[in-house]
Structures are given as structure tokens and as C-alpha cells.
Design a protein around this nucleic acid. Structure first.
Lengths: 233, 233
DNA sequence: GTCTATAGCAAGATAGAC
DNA sequence: GTCTATCTTGCTATAGAC
């Protein structure tokens, strides 16, 4: 009971074993893909028993969380420079999106499994589930930085919702990327390069009086959907 | 060689067994979920051997195809009336979307697995994979009927792409539905009721000169992405 | 061509001893 | 915390009945 909720006290020893297992798993996932990498192989390669691997990770899927964390960390670092120097919205967003692709590239093959988990609402690894909320919030915060650090002018009602909308856009791109079989994922790059200016333009247009009702409806809809989370609609 | 390609000649007997197996499986999936339903249990419940089940369905996943087919068939029938009588675009689209929810409702719990497969590009059951192309094409054709049978006026460049865009919209709604935990999936209903008028309005606006460039960019982007399928971009 | 029975493998997961 | 042994289950293989 001395532990703070959500955190687990970890001895240096257990931490070391844990890290060893997850790093071994991630390496094998990259080399042979998720399906072909067995728990037995991970355990053997890491020099621990299968039971021990399961002591730290309740399932093979749980090991994928390591993937999320690793990517998020690398991604944030990869965006740092662009976010610190560039002031225009479109290039900022573009840098963040391409940065994600750069970071995720080595995991493309294995990334399938990533999104398979993502799509399963019962999986604790789903980006929509409460479990992975911190990762989701961090990503939304990144998009808030994209917006706040830029010179773009946004409809005042739309602005607070925009980071979450951009995150949704990112999820869509990720979904596309997972399915992208083109060399070097060129199609995903193309998708980004063509949608970013579109988004930029639409955000600009959001302030037009003619489009105000549309903008307002979208903002209201999101608000209602989020708000109707607990109370009976 | 007497068979037409893509079709399998089925004796009444084999057809009966096949149906028996898939219906048993679907029932057990509904009752206990996909993961907890074993092939052994399906075979036992259907009164056939495991080997026989595998004779008809090469894998457990293949049984999920029965789910797709069933839903698609029921959905089309459920939409028939509305598509035959209603002439306005928004109510037509609304009827098709709510019709899908009605039909899919009993499978909501099990539907997770449905979308898990859908998200895996390597799965032959993915709606994006070529294997399930017929199902996808059928669904796009349904949206073409929604459009063609309506009185809505659409930008001429946008029109041919719209059925596929509506299908994408439907995929998004399905994704939302899979994650929807609200009673009777009220949130998904809300999502439909609020997004359909929005779509209707945006389609109307697509003909405005001011938005023409945006519309054109979207159409071009889709064209480029589809076209760059085989040749080196 | 349709089906049973059964044996067996591989791999995810668990139990219980230490 | 860690291990070994065992269980479960998706799936395959085979041999044979009708």
C-alpha cells in the first residue's frame, strides 16, 4: 500500500530483467516479425525462463507496449528541432508527421501488430483505451505545441479542439501507413504532403462566416460525444 | 474445369454442413466471444469432427467471413425500403448507416474481433485486402445507389469519388461503433445523426467557387493514391 | 467428394515448487 | 523472482469409412 496508484515499485534487479526482456523482444520482433517471434525464443535469447517472461508481461501483446513507449520517445526527440525553429503551421505539422514516419520506419513490418492491437478496444494497448491514455495525451500535447508555436490564425471555437482533431488525423495516417506496401512508404509520404496543405487551408477557411456553421457543428459534435461519456446521454 | 472462376460447385449436402458449421460458430462467438470459442467446441456443438470443420474452413478466421457475408446480406435487405422510397440524400445516407447498426447490433460484442481482423492488412478478412474486395465493392456500390437515387447536386469532379469516400466514412463509423460502450450504442447513433447533415452540407458547398480548389485537391489526392498502386510513383 | 477419429506439433499461457 | 513442468488450443496429418 506504500505504492502510488498506477506505479509499481521496482527493484533495480527486476527493472533490469524487465528491460532485458522487452529489448530482446523488440529486437526479435524487428528481425522476424511479431507472429514468428515466440515467447520461448524471446525467453531463450534473453536468457530467462518462459515463466519469468510472463511474470513481467502478462501476455505477448503486453510486450508491444514497449514499442509504443519507444516510438513516442524517439518521435518527440525527432520533432524537437523543427518545433523550436519553424514558425509556420504547415511545415510544423509536416515535420511532426514525417518525423513519426522516420521513427516508425524500422518497425513497419511489425507495425501491423501495433495497429491490430490499436483496433481492439479491449486491448490495454488500444490508443483509445484508458490504459494508454498517457501516451494518447502526450501525442495530443505534441499537436498542441505544433499549433501554439505557430503563427496560424484559427477560429476561436475550433482552436481548443484542434489538437485532438490533429491526433485523429495522425491516427488515420498511421492506419494508412500500416497498410502501405509502396517502397519506402512513399504513398504515406505523399498522403502527408498533400493533406497537410489541405488542413492548413481548411483551418484558415474555418474563420469565414460562410463556414462558421459547419465549424461550429463539428466542434459541438465532438464536445457532445466526449461529454456523453458517463452520464446517460 | 466446368466451374466458373471464383465459384465452387456445392452439393446440397456439403452446403448444409457448411451452413451448420458457420451458424454454430457464429452462435458460439456471440455467446462466448471469439477468443473463448475453440474449434473443438464448434465442431462438438455442430456434431462434426474437427477435421471436417477444417475441411470447410481453412482457419478459425475464415469463419469470420461468415459474419461479413451475413451482415452484408441483412444490411442490403434492411436498406431496400428506404432506398426505394426516399429521394433526399441525407435521409438516404442516414437510413443506410442506421440500417447497418441495426443489423450489426447483435454482434457488437463479437464485433471487436471483426475489426481486429479488419485492421490487419495481412488478414484475408481485411476490408482493404484484395480478398475481401467483393464485399468492399458491394458496399461502395450501395453508397453509389444512395447517391444516384437522390436529388442531391454534387460537384462534377467530386461525384465519381464520393461513393468511395462515403465508404471510408462508414469505416470510420464502424471503428467508432466497435469502441462504443454506451447503452444501445447511442453515441454511434448520435455520431451518425450529427455527421450526416454535415456531410450533406459539405457536399452542397463543394460546388462553391471558393471551395473548388479544396475539392479538386481532395479528388486529385485520392486519384494519385489509387493510381500509384503498381507503377513506381 | 464428404466425413470420422485420433494422434501429434507448436506456441501462448499457467501452477506450483524453490 | 525465477524455474520447470504442464495445460490449452489452433492447426495439421493420416488412415480409413461411406
Amino acid at each position: 500500500m506504500a505504492e502510488s496508484p498506477g506505479t509499481v515499485v521496482r527493484t533495480p534487479k527486476s527493472e533490469a530483467t524487465r528491460t532485458l526482456i522487452v529489448e530482446t523482444a523488440l529486437r526479435l520482433f524487428q528481425e522476424n516479425g511479431y507472429a514468428k517471434t515466440t515467447m520461448r525464443a524471446i525467453a531463450k535469447e534473453a536468457g530467462v525462463s518462459v515463466g519469468n517472461a510472463y511474470y513481467y508481461f502478462s501476455s505477448k501483446e503486453q510486450l508491444v507496449q514497449g514499442f509504443y513507449d519507444r516510438i513516442a520517445e524517439l518521435h518527440e526527440r525527432a520533432c524537437e528541432h523543427a518545433l523550436a525553429t519553424e514558425r509556420e503551421f504547415a511545415p510544423r505539422l509536416r515535420a511532426v508527421m514525417h518525423g513519426w514516419l522516420d521513427v516508425a520506419a524500422p518497425f513497419h513490418e511489425f507495425g501491423k501488430q501495433f495497429f491490430v492491437n490499436a483496433a481492439d478496444p479491449d486491448s490495454p494497448l488500444s490508443p483509445f483505451s484508458t490504459d494508454s491514455s498517457p501516451a494518447r495525451e502526450a501525442q495530443i500535447a505534441l499537436h498542441r505545441r505544433v499549433l501554439d508555436g505557430s503563427t496560424v490564425k484559427v477560429d476561436t471555437e475550433l482552436r481548443p479542439e484542434l489538437p485532438e482533431l490533429l491526433w485523429l488525423y495522425e491516427m488515420g495516417v498511421v492506419l494508412f501507413w500500416v497498410h502501405d506496401r509502396s517502397p519506402d512508404c512513399r504513398k504515406t509520404r505523399l498522403l502527408i504532403d498533400r493533406t497537410v496543405p489541405l488542413i492548413d487551408r481548411v483551418i484558415g477557411l474555418s474563420r469565414l462566416r460562410l463556414l462558421r456553421p459547419v465549424t461550429r457543428d463539428i466542434v459541438r459534435l465532438i464536445g457532445d460525444l466526449v461529454r456523453s461519456d458517463d452520464p446517460s446521454a
